[in-house]
């Protein structure tokens, strides 16, 4: 069942390191995605990602076990980093990855021209939220899959799928981007570095914690993101998940610390014709990858075997909530009430 299921909906899991890659492969991922150790991908965090040697090892490990490897080159190179971008495309092609996940139109054109045999996926950073946009990338660069920004409702996803021959991948679990991916410069506004330019959002080097008798405060390049009373649990100061003052009210004005989880709604996604389910979290530990991959594999198999009678096990939900940001989850934009 698993093998046949995999053909129908691919489970795509994060590999921020070789141990994480092995965890994903061992726990049932159909594909893993990784990035190089620099600003060519949207998880450019210290200590994360792959050099050419470790990438080759990871690809070998995955391929020996029938698991695909996708490589994210999804930042937007500027003139001074352009050559690094094209070199990364060439490197990835040489390494034998199964697809590149890309966002920059110029770099997509380079890849499509130089490596016509290479399969291309449009990254979520490409901000393609309609079939009209996705079909454009198909015509221009032969893109074969698009990862959807987390802005569409279930019915909008289904309509989009019905109007394109490009495979559609959606996020199934992980930290929630509230903004249209690829169209958010909040991080560079506060810190100078954004996902588009540097592959980083709310970068660790801009974070400062203060602690005194009144509690703890988190800052991003000096801007107060949140404050916590003594004993209150504190999270990483992602800019859009802090507590701010609007109209005299201090609250999570943009979004609470929470994770996206589609565990309860896999049948709807299958029915919509989604071809791949992505787990976010290249910046997370191998233990996280192991946990989430295991649960999502079980859930996806159960759903594929019997979509009409699928009910997520309580244990799955509990396991995912334990590793979720804010220990809680949401459907995000898929649920119109969230919008």
């Amino acid at each position: 069942m698993t093998i046949e299921s995999s053909k129908r909906v691919e489970l795509v899991c994060p590999a921020g390191s070789l141990p994480a890659l092995k965890a994903a492969v061992d726990c049932g991922a159909d594909a893993v995605y990784m990035g190089f150790r620099d600003a060519t991908n949207a998880r450019n965090f210290p200590g994360l990602n792959f050099d050419e040697g470790s990438a080759a090892k990871g690809i070998e490990y995955a391929h020996q076990r029938g698991v695909k490897v996708l490589l994210a080159l999804n930042t937007f190179p500027q003139p001074e980093s352009w050559e690094r971008g094209t070199r990364a495309v060439d490197q990835a092609a040489g390494l034998g990855v199964d697809a590149l996940i890309m966002a920059d139109p110029g770099l997509l054109r380079y890849a499509a021209t130089r490596h016509p045999e290479l399969r291309l996926h449009l990254s979520v950073q490409g901000s393609a939220t309609s079939y009209e946009a996705i079909n454009f990338y198909r015509r221009q660069f032969g893109v074969q899959r698009a990862v959807l920004p987390r802005v569409l409702s279930f019915s909008q996803v289904a309509r989009l799928v019905a109007n394109t021959e490009v495979e559609v991948e959606v996020f199934g679990f992980g930290s929630l981007c509230v903004m249209v991916e690829g169209r958010c410069a909040l991080s560079s506004y506060a810190t100078g570095e954004s996902p588009n330019t540097c592959g980083a959002c709310s970068p660790a080097k801009a974070v400062r914690w203060e602690e005194d008798t009144e509690g703890r405060r988190s800052r991003l390049n000096g801007v107060l993101i949140d404050s916590y009373k003594p004993g209150e649990s504190a999270g990483y100061p992602v800019l859009c998940k802090g507590r701010f003052e609007v109209n005299g009210r201090v609250d999570y004005a943009i979004e609470e610390p929470t994770s996206l989880s589609l565990l309860d709604h896999l049948p709807e996604l299958l029915k919509a014709g989604v071809k791949a389910l992505k787990v976010e979290g290249r910046q997370r530990s191998p233990a996280y990858v192991r946990q989430v991959t295991t649960v999502m594999r079980s859930a996806l198999d159960a759903c594929l075997a019997n979509p009409d009678n699928y009910t997520p096990q309580a244990a799955w939900t509990a396991q995912l909530d334990r590793v979720a940001e804010g220990s809680t989850h949401t459907l995000g934009a898929l649920d119109r009430a969230w919008q």
Partner: peptide
């Protein structure tokens, strides 16, 4: 004022405790 980000969510409605719909 620079338009820095877009979302499916309406933050003005959120502040007013109104659903976007």
């Amino acid at each position: 004022r620079m338009p820095l980000a877009f979302s499916a969510r309406c933050f003005t409605a959120r502040n007013r405790d109104l659903p976007k719909d």
